[in-house]
Structure formats: structure tokens, C-alpha cells
Design a binder for these strands. Structure first.
Lengths: 264, 264
DNA sequence: ACCGCTGGTTCAAATAATGAACCGAACAGG
DNA sequence: CCTGTTCGGTTCATTATTTGAACCAGCGGT
């Protein structure tokens, strides 16, 4: 593993519940030597990716990240574009919706919105990375993503999150096939024991899936009719997202005419 | 220079006008070997800090940055907190206002707002880092920041941006002294030939300046009366920012009773 | 006085980063 | 059709950087 990766991985230890991390805590988390960890921390800090609390001496994520987000958003306003669309989708279907982008072999959440219309809600932490094989977003992405990614995931370890997680590659391959044919994916209780979700791919300019939009509902509310309603709106939102981000759908994607819009 | 820094510095080449950078372009920009640059790019990409355009093969900032911003904002909602205050300040004084945070020996813009009330405007690019010695924000920060930083900047190179940039350390030291006594800084045509600006420090919980808020006006509109009006509102905004971010002013800061609020 | 816990530093030893030369593809011009 | 150039990317011996055991220093408690 390269030094750069070692340093950057440290940033992933931060989360909603862990906003400040001290030197010794980092040593425990990484399993690396204290001197090594310290030098990495210092170098990250010098570049603004971390900053040290002047009182507790613990480290937190630094201002460089904010600035870079600004630069990225100026070029490809993903967050800016995604926010209203996800919000509209979530409010429309009355359930939690989120968009995640591919990052390595995981999904990186970009924005989520829960209209909180019901007593039970789906738990969602924007700080946590999502697995590809156990989420509807992931399956949708694998179905229309780069071939290398598909092979890598199929031949890699498939962590079991619930009894319904597709942990053998044959079952996963089947799920991916189904998603490719349908243009979206449906997954029940595969990541969270009580959640059913549906995901649809978002494409880049090359017609490769780079992310996915998904609606998750508590399994108890997941009637076939409700899922069918969600499906239509989900696909419409996905198409809109692809378009707004300057992408075009894969030729393999069975893009139905967007609901309510007749094809010319 | 460490490998981590070499890699992270590459991210700084991205800007509003340069959102995609190819391998050879990076080689020119960094002056490093192609193989080295390429491995750095790959490692950054593997960690989601970059992503490669599937068509042009050029690199752009990746999704990891978005996620980390989300995590940081959940812990210390700087951007969220700063936005309305800066906006209110800018609209109140009718001129461009911005907040920047210290990053190494530079300032990293976090948010800016220009009410566009006049024909002439101050140019501001949120993607560009600002020098400490040539901006009012920087002087304010140096006056109340860590001593080590002050010494480092005073003994380092002081780039000349305009004929009025304080380029010798004595003049800079004097400007810092003035700012410390006044609690804010004023700088004319030191960074941009046609801009006057005033800056006030923002403190962390340890009473150390970690950033600054500033109002910049075209020099032609910078009458003494106008600057005086701005000064009061600027200091009020700075106090509010410090408080909202959980900081407390340095004992050395001559915090006047906030305008309109009598001290108990 | 001691201990256990922080964060931080040093220097020889070992590992990981480096770069000249290489490949294959795409494009332009003769 | 051949040639030269530029692009992204890869290889492997050489070299320089990262690494970690041992070391300080400060703090709170006993």
C-alpha cells in the first residue's frame, strides 16, 4: 500500500459520531506506528486536510476540503444539481431517497433526503460508505458500470450484512443481469434487515454508470403497488440526473419514455 | 517534501477555469516525472479524491471530497453557519464580503457573497488561495493567530502584488501591530491595485485566530465614512462568527461592546 | 515520589518512491 | 503507407524516502 493511500485512509475514520480523533486513537484505528501516524497527520494538516484543535490537540477535517468542494461544484455541480431532484423525489414518494457516487469499490453518499412522513424511518448516515453488492444502488451501478468493476466485485469478498445479502457470486451475477434487463434494481432486506430499496443508474458522458439514485422504504410498507409507483418516479429522476450532469444513458439501458412524456 | 504533500498539492492545480487536467498537463505543472505523477494520480483516484473522465481520460476532483465536506459540516458547520452571516453583512454594507480560514500559510476561502449593488465589482475567486501578508484578512489573522505563524511569515518571502504590498518585514510587522491594537485591519491596494479591504479575526475555542471575515470595496468608493460604517458591522459579524463556531475571542482582542448591545 | 496516559521527536534500518526507457494508440502531414 | 508527434500508461534497477523502537516531556492521579 502506498504512503498516499495510508494517509488518505485516515480521513475515512471521521464520521458523524467521530468528528475529532487524537494521535493515540489514530494509532489504535490504523494499527500503524505512532511516529508514522504522526508524520502523516502533520503532513495532512500542512495541506489543510486536517486541522488540530488548539485546546484538545485532537485532529479534525480541515478547510482544504471545503475549498475543493467549492472548486468541484463549480465544474460539475453534482451536489447542487442533485439536491433539488432528490428532494423532489423523496417528497413525491414520501420515502427516503439518496444519490451516491462510485468511489473505488464502494458507494459514496452525496445527498439524501427523508420527508419523515411516517412513524418508522430508514436509518441513513451520509458519512458512511455503502457496499456495492448489498445495496440496490450498487446493483444498479454494477449492471451499467465498467466491466472491470463488475469482475472485481464478483471475484472479491461479499460481506454478509443480513441473511438475504447476496453473498455468492452466482446470485449476485443474477441480480445484476436482472437489473440490466429491467434498467433498475430491487433489493429486499439485503443490507438492512428491515429495508427494501430500489436503485437506478446515473450515467456520465461516456454512457458508463458513475452513481445511482435510490429510494429506500421500511419493508413493512413495501407493497408491490407502492414499489411500482416508486419505480416510475425513480427512473424519471435518474434520467433527469443523468441529463443534468451532462451524461447520456448507456445504449444497454432500456430507457423507457419518461413517464408522461411521449417520445417524438 | 513528503510523498503525501506531493500528491495533495496536485489537487490545488484545479480551479474554476481548470476543472479537468490530463496526465501530461500535470507533468508540466508539477515538473515531476511522468511515472511519478501517474502513480500519484492513480492513488488519488483509488481513494476517490480524483476521478477520470471516461471519455477524455483527464482527471477531475472526485466524490470523496464531497463526502468529507458532509462529514465536516456535520461536526463544525462552518459553511452552514458562515453563509447567512456573510450574506447579511454583504447586503448590509452593499459590498463584497467573504470568510476565509487559515490553511498552512495561506488563506482558504470558505464563502463569499457580492450583493452587486454597484457597477464596479471586486473580483473574487473562491477557488484561489489568498496570501496572508497582502490581504486584510491575513493581517487580522496574523495579529491574533499563533506566534509561530507570525514569525514564519515575517521571515519568509513576501510576494509583491502591487506597489502597495507590504513586502518588507518591518512594514508588515507594523501593520500587524496596528491590527492588534485596533482589533481589525485595513489595507489599501495591497493585493489588488483597485481594492481597499478591512478584515477582522475569527477565533477558535482556544482564543487563537483561525480565520477572518473581510469586506472589500473598490478603492474609488472607499471614503473614510464608508469604511467607518463597514468597520462596525464587520466587527459585529466577526464576533457573531466566533460565537457561532464555538470560539471565544483572544484576551488581546479589544472587543468593543457589539454595536447596539450594551455590556451588562 | 511514582505510574499511566497523553502528544511529540530521533536516527539507523528497511521499505517504498523514483525516473529513464519502454509500449501502444491516436492523430497529422508528406 | 510511412513517419513523427503527442497522448496515456507501464517496467525495473537505483535511490531516497518512509518507517518504527526507543526516547522526551507534560499532565492528572495515587
Amino acid at each position: 500500500m502506498g504512503t498516499i493511500t495510508k494517509a488518505l485512509e485516515m480521513l475515512n475514520f471521521f464520521s458523524r459520531s467521530r468528528s475529532h480523533i487524537g494521535l493515540s486513537e489514530f494509532v489504535k484505528l490504523t494499527g500503524r506506528d505512532k511516529a508514522t501516524v504522526h508524520r502523516h497527520l502533520v503532513e495532512l494538516e500542512e495541506n489543510g486536510f486536517l486541522e488540530q484543535d488548539s485546546v484538545s490537540r485532537a485532529y479534525r477535517l480541515g478547510p482544504a476540503i471545503l475549498r475543493l468542494t467549492g472548486v468541484r461544484e463549480a465544474a460539475i455541480p453534482v451536489r447542487t444539481v442533485v439536491r433539488p431532484i432528490v428532494r423532489a423525489l423523496a417528497e413525491d414518494v414520501g420515502e427516503l431517497a439518496h444519490v451516491s457516487l462510485l468511489q473505488g469499490r464502494m458507494l459514496s453518499p452525496v445527498f439524501h433526503f427523508d420527508p419523515f412522513e411516517h412513524g418508522t424511518q430508514v436509518h441513513f448516515d451520509e458519512a458512511e460508505m455503502l457496499p456495492l453488492h448489498a445495496t440496490s444502488s450498487g446493483i444498479a451501478l454494477l449492471a451499467f458500470g465498467a466491466e472491470g468493476l463488475r469482475n472485481a466485485v464478483l471475484s472479491g469478498a461479499l460481506t454478509e450484512f443480513t441473511p438475504d445479502t447476496p453473498t455468492d457470486s452466482e446470485r449476485l451475477k443474477q441480480a445484476i443481469e436482472d437489473a440490466r434487463r429491467a434498467g433498475y434494481s430491487r433489493l429486499d432486506r439485503a443490507f438492512d434487515r428491515e429495508v427494501s430499496s430500489q436503485g437506478a443508474p446515473i450515467f456520465d458522458a461516456g454512457g458508463i454508470a458513475i452513481g445511482a439514485v435510490s429510494v429506500a422504504v421500511p419493508a413493512v410498507r413495501a407493497t408491490p403497488e407502492k414499489l411500482e409507483t416508486i419505480k416510475g418516479k425513480l427512473l424519471a429522476a435518474a434520467a433527469k440526473l443523468t441529463e443534468s450532469l451532462g451524461g447520456r444513458p448507456s445504449p444497454a439501458h432500456p430507457s423507457e419514455p419518461t413517464t408522461g412524456t411521449a417520445s417524438a
